[in-house]
Design a protein around this nucleic acid. Sequence first.
DNA 1: GCCGTTTTCGGCCCGACTGTTTTCAGTCG
Length: 595
Amino acid sequence: MPDKFTVARALREIGALLEVEGENPFKVRAYENGARALEGLADDLGATIAAGKLTELNGIGEALAKKIADLHATGSTPLLERLRASHPPGILKLLQIPELGPKKIAALHAALGIATVADLETACLGGRVRGVKGFGGKTEQKILEGIRRFRSRAIDRRTLLADALAVADDLLAYLRPFPAAERVELAGSARRGRETVNDLDLVAASRDPAALAAHFAAYPSADEVLARGPTKTTLRLATGLQVDLRMVPPEDFATLHHHLTGSKAHHVRLRGIARELGYTLSEWGLHRLDPAREATPDVPLTGGEPALDHARKVPIESEEALYAALGLRFVPPELREDQGEIEAARDGSLPGDLVRPEDIRGFVHCHTVWSDGRATVEEMARAAEARGAEFVTITDHSRAAGYAGGLDLDRLRRQWEEIDRVQEKVKIRLLKGTEADILEDGALDWPDEVIERLDVVVASVHSRFRMDEDQMTRRLVRAMSVPFFKIWGHGLGRLLNEREPYACRVEEVLDALAASRGAAEVNGDPQRLDLEPRWIRAARSRGVPLVLSVDAHSTGALGYLRFAVATARRGWARRGEVLNAHPAEVFAQAVRPAG
DNA sequence: GCCGTTTTCGGCCCGACTGTTTTCAGTCG
């Protein structure tokens, strides 16, 4: 039976195909809104449908509820069948090509019968696209470039958050000392801590944007200037990553920074609230509408502030002030996804104590040369100590992870002796742990009497990823039900851009984890970031505590903590819910496998 | 398609930039 995320995908497919048909854009958006409402559903979808409570969700009415029920029961609904029958399957792929939207696709399909990426490429190369009304030679070239980028993304390859932030740090260091830059900050999905990003968005306060834009365009790693206007310049870096720099006078900085941080869905909601309060909100700020002249349409000026001559600007000096003006508590960037944060900011239930990097007192899940790590126990301990940690857990692989140098019992005992020796030399507290494989049948890769002697157990799947959903769910439920405290390591085994999460009914596993004793890991490895935010919320709602880990195979990887924290914040994790935000003794007591 | 102490109809967020248009449509975020 399809879960809520599968049903949400089907709604988005309906929306996309309706868009190609030229359907009312608000109707198209209704499907997108419905999909998001579904994804944010806290309760079981089947139960919600059975109780007739779907329409209680904001954005789902009678029509969508009916279709969602169909999709949940049968995997499809008549409208989706009709749309799939009347549009070639390649249409959805065409929508993914940059520069190509529903209108152009429809026009090309009508004029030239283009239905696939290959058709489109052939037509561009043959010079036939420029003959279609509304298309010219430049558009033809842009489409070809778009196809090339579409293909190079292969499996929808996006830039990892860690890589994006490294580039952003470098760019900020380049831009900030420039005299015409009064302030430069990161915005966009990277600021929100998204696991991967499409591009980087930077915002600058400047009284001389032309000079700043010129300096930006001269950035040494820039490959090409893609666009250049009075307030915005776009670069493509040698790595292919695209960077936008938007510039405004200092007094408009806060609202622009907020605007470009997104998400789009969050902003749509805020603008609706602004309207209700008699304002209009845009990157140019908050303006109070003059009711007497409300009917006057805005007349945008090219390349400047729109002529909101019937409205009065409300000075906004910070994001906090903007939310306050809308009657809302400040919403941290990581939460701005229209996943309930607006309602929480309104009724005051938004958590004010989201976990922060400085809250974390110990590094969990560290490998050493005993298995597949590159640093010794002592090197790892000293590196963790140098970063100010109170404790570090040494969790090398268990025997079944042969490819990773997993330890047998004899080597595990010798490792304990070494940890004891190092402990005498360092102040930081060392905990003896394991990353135990979850075997095919759900058993852990150590006998009970060994587990009882360990300080901490991370239990992870490292083999047989391709089991079907039933098998994998049974395997994990059994593993999470063992009567020891265990940390579910890198939950769904995904590797961003490389491997999908494995099929599994996550809620059932979390139920088992909650009923037995255990915690869920938020793995900070830039390619994992696993569990992902929606499942972090599901774990928290069951009272399952979290561990923010680095999964470090080198001393440098202790820096992954930043990404684990960002991911946990996206899952609304509060400081008190994170075990390694507690003092060493409290943490050690909480994670002790036995007792 | 959704939604409603101004409404069950008529709204629905807003602007930058490009390319093709000669006043604007399409795409993006």
